[in-house]
Design a protein around this nucleic acid. Structure first.
Lengths: 202, 202
DNA sequence: GTCTATATCGGGATAGAC
DNA sequence: GTCTATCCCGATATAGAC
């Protein structure tokens, strides 16, 4: 029975290797050979199990972001809705930073692959839009342009702090091995965004 | 003399084509053939004039972002400094959205090319960090974590609104051909960020 | 300086042994 | 199901004519 389960194991090893490499070097910048080396399996297995590099990409999201963003917001309390949305996104980002990174890359270059995947996150952003509109209508948020405000909030949320590219700027003296408290990150994010929306009642 | 100047013309045509395509499809996702087709010149001219695709990338930044971010901030008035910095970045982003888009892609995937180019924008972010620290010291900004705050502000700034990827979310009814007033965009951005920093005296 | 034709390399996918 | 060896295509870069 160890033999029977081996297929699943290999598929997962490939997915994890691909997740890591795609996030780091991009979809096009990653070769199937690199993926298989990283996973410690033979070159042919990507085609055998997934039917090509492209399908590994899709499988990544199906596997690691299956139940992402089911939540519905009734807009009765936009402030609370927004807090929930920020939390939901932040938790996913903390859990799957590579996936967010990859998604962000694809979004920036409007890749053809995005189409089959964008609904994962578009649903969330539609909710964000609705929350912002409701909050303004009810006088809890204050902003001039819906369009720019959506961009600001999405920018704040999506710009993953896990990317080390700002490290040279920040010259972190803190010990990074100490895992940061998720709740702190969420609290900072909520505070920045709600203040940015001139929301007094936080 | 038309002949003598033609070299410059071709180089510029290649650079503009590359800027457009790199921003849209990424460095690796763009082929030299596509660049030359878009520019309307022969395939060989990229190698002839630039010595390869990679050097076209570097020439892009040398050509279109030469005097970016010369400004020095003395930190005497952090609020004013931050406003200036936001304006400076926003103007560049409005002038060269493709370049920001490309830079953002490279940053996300930590491309090896980034090294020769990152100083262009790292200088700005170091200034941002200094301004944020000074502003907190002087009691004008209020935040808990410098690290996250830098990320928030950079995220807000860099997430270019020119990328059409949020259009389906925003279902823009506004006529996009009407050029938006730069000053409005800058004003919105300053307002969001300064509020996010709990800066009362805007 | 610019073009066409081609050499060379590398990547994805597959054939076939085990 | 997994491996090695190979095919085939497409991409960069170059050679050489004009």
């Amino acid at each position: 029975m160890k033999h029977d389960a081996q297929g699943k194991d290999v598929k997962l090893k490939i997915l994890n290797a691909a997740k890591k490499l795609f996030a780091k070097k991009g979809f096009e910048g990653t070769t199937v050979r690199q993926i298989c080396d990283e996973a410690g399996v033979a070159l042919a297995l990507v085609s055998y199990h997934f039917g090509g590099k492209e399908n590994v990409f899709y499988a990544l999201f199906e596997t690691f972001a299956p139940s992402f963003l089911q939540k519905e917001y009734d807009l009765a309390d936009p402030i609370d809705d927004l807090k929930s949305l920020i939390r939901e996104f932040a938790l996913f980002r903390l859990a799957e930073p590579e996936l967010i990174n990859l998604l962000q890359q694809e979004v920036m270059m409007q890749s053809p692959r995005l189409e089959k995947v964008q609904n994962i996150v578009y649903a969330l952003w539609l909710q964000l839009r609705a929350i912002l509109e409701a909050g303004k209508r009810q006088g809890q948020f204050d902003y001039e342009s819906l369009r720019h405000t959506v961009h600001f909030v999405v920018g704040t949320l999506i710009f993953t702090r896990n990317s080390p590219f700002l490290d040279p700027v920040l010259q972190l003296k803190e010990d990074l091995s100490v895992k940061e408290d998720q709740e702190d990150v969420i609290r900072y994010t909520i505070s920045y965004i709600l203040s940015g929306l001139k929301c007094s009642a936080q």
